[in-house]
């Protein structure tokens, strides 16, 4: 993966698209402008001093898409075959969502045009409403999808929402499904939860049962420390342990396929 707008000397240059085949290109981008509920109400009733806000913002977005090459230095001037700008008044989140789609048959992608349309439509919404609300905030501008071209189709994956949570390679917002042992011999599955997971930088590991000097929690701890001295933390301070989701002590026995979790003192409620 390289940056196509840089040449071999690292200088900015415009990509020569003369030899690229023409294909049907389409891109959709979206963003939003957050505002006070009162402002949104005025906007939907047409009660704002500058008049029809959405119609103006739509024209602004379309005009901006056509002039993207004047704003973004290395963009080509494109003969767009279609630009649409749509608005969705989201009362629940008190904001206007802006979606723009650009299309052409040509040699370059149109995602910059769609992103520019969204940006300028949002700016125009700000301009049209600023008399009554200066706290508005523009955000979340991103490419949703693009089709056509050499790099192929793209569709944005929604990131994991911060949600119920246990482990998952240290990332918050992940639930790790209790995986089976990933090795053939007898083993234990070890999980590290919450702050301990972040401190150790690991959420799940599998330990062969026959590597334990004694088949109990204490034996597991000692084999972990041998693997990495940082696991000495498991015996320091207040680190709790559960075997198959039941609170356990160092002397608690472990058998094949047990799930052993280490975690800090609980802080719910």
């Amino acid at each position: 993966m390289s940056l196509t707008h840089l040449n071999t000397r690292g200088e900015a240059h415009m990509v020569d698209v003369a030899d690229k085949p023409e294909s049907r290109r389409e891109a959709t981008a979206s963003g939003h402008i957050q505002m006070k509920p009162e402002t949104l109400a005025l906007l939907s009733e047409g009660g704002l001093p500058k008049g029809d806000v959405l119609a103006t913002a739509r024209i602004a977005g379309i005009q901006a898409a056509k002039r993207t090459h004047e704003l973004i230095p290395l963009c080509h001037a494109l003969a767009l075959s279609k630009v649409s700008v749509d608005f969705n008044l989201d009362e629940q989140n008190s904001r206007v969502e802006v979606v723009a789609t650009c299309r052409l048959n040509g040699r370059t992608g149109v995602e910059m045009e769609a992103l520019t349309a969204v940006s300028v439509a949002c700016l125009t919404l700000y301009d049209m409403c600023k008399a009554v609300d200066k706290d508005m905030e523009i955000g979340g501008i991103h490419l949703d999808a693009k089709q056509g071209g050499k790099s192929g189709d793209y569709r944005r994956q929604e990131g994991p929402v911060a949600a119920p949570i246990v482990t998952g390679e240290g990332a918050a917002g992940q639930v790790s499904v209790g995986s089976r042992c990933d090795i053939d011999s007898a083993c234990v599955r070890v999980k590290f939860l919450a702050e301990l997971r972040e401190r150790l930088g690991v959420s799940d590991i599998t330990v062969p049962l026959d590597s334990l000097p004694s088949t109990d929690v204490g034996g597991l701890k000692s084999v972990l420390v041998k693997r990495d001295p940082r696991f000495a933390q498991l015996s320091e301070g207040r680190v709790l342990c559960a075997v198959n989701q039941v609170m356990a002590l160092d002397a608690t026995p472990i058998t094949n396929d047990d799930e052993v979790a280490f975690f800090p003192p609980v802080t719910g409620g």
Partner: peptide, 23 residues
């Protein structure tokens, strides 16, 4: 519940994120 149920709070503040300590 506060001392035995396995919940953990991470607080997000203007000056950074941190895990809440037991009390």
């Amino acid at each position: 519940l506060k001392t035995r149920a396995p919940f953990w709070k991470k607080e997000h503040s203007i000056t950074g994120d941190y895990w809440v300590a037991e009390r």
